[in-house]
């Protein structure tokens, strides 16, 4: 499961403090809804048919007992005693109050470093049998999809304003079990003839927000795995539009 480090904890705590200030300014009228909306969306807060909704990310789709108990406590204290687990590895609280949201998020952050999920990136997927399939290039692909998302995307300014529901898939198998061609960004780990590891990068897949009929970019990344390039895009040396924008943060 995802192991939170000090940087994660600091980042989540700072996000909560910042959002608390933004909520206070919205409630006092200092911020209009037009000004507040992009801020709440970046914190995973939506206004739905009946109430506000808070979406909380579950990295890797796994929860510790402490995390699950904290989610339950948040549901009891700040919602109606239940939440909704989604097919994309989140939990949603559908009846939460804006004025109590900072406290709920602080409790999640304090107890288990969990954070809300910003709107732009829907999720990063990888094959369910990674690490078990015989055709694998690397055995860590199953972890690399969420790791890519958690380490490279969270609060990254160039990922924060992507079209909604931007989807990423990562696979290490020659047999594509992650459907990388139908994602906005598809990454396939591969080994070339000299045995060097790299990535094949595909952008604008068939279900992407902006589809492309020529979606394959160059195969030039020399990084061995996503985790080896923590805090840096693994697509940093490719010529695709997405990868090119990723190189700017260094």
């Amino acid at each position: 499961m995802y192991i939170y480090d000090d940087l994660d904890r600091q980042l989540v705590a700072e996000r909560v403090d910042e959002f608390r200030d933004q909520v206070a300014r919205r409630l006092s009228g200092a911020l209009t809804e037009d000004e507040f909306k992009p801020l709440r969306l970046m914190n995973g807060v939506y206004l739905q048919l009946h109430a506000y909704m808070l979406r909380v990310a579950v990295p890797y789709g796994t929860l510790s007992s402490d995390q699950l108990r904290t989610l339950a406590r948040v549901a009891r204290r700040y919602d109606r005693g239940y939440g909704h687990f989604t097919t994309r590895q989140n939990i949603q609280f559908n009846w939460i109050k804006l004025q109590e949201l900072p406290d709920a998020m602080a409790e999640l952050a304090r107890a288990v470093s969990m954070a809300s999920r910003p709107a732009a990136i829907a999720c990063a997927t990888s094959p369910p049998i990674s690490g078990q399939a015989s055709r694998r290039t690397k055995s860590k692909t199953r972890a690399s999809g969420p790791k890519f998302s958690a380490s490279n995307v969270t609060l990254h300014p160039e990922f924060s304003f992507l079209p909604r529901k931007f989807k990423i898939a990562v696979t290490a198998s020659g047999h594509d079990r992650a459907a990388i061609k139908v994602h906005d960004l598809g990454l396939r780990l591969y080994r070339n003839a000299s045995g060097e590891s790299g990535f094949e990068v595909l952008v604008g897949g068939a279900s992407a927000a902006r589809r492309s009929s020529r979606n394959r970019s160059s195969r030039s990344c020399r990084h061995a795995t996503c985790s080896a390039t923590s805090r840096r895009s693994c697509a940093s040396t490719t010529s695709s539009r997405v990868a090119t924008t990723s190189t700017r943060r260094g």
């Binding site: 919205r26 409630l27 809804e33 206004l47 009946h50 109430a51 506000y52 939460i96 109050k97 804006l98 004025q99």
Partner: peptide, 10 residues
């Protein structure tokens, strides 16, 4: 509308 403080339908 939705009430700003708690999101309730108003």
């Amino acid at each position: 509308g939705n009430r700003v403080g708690d999101g309730k339908v108003v």
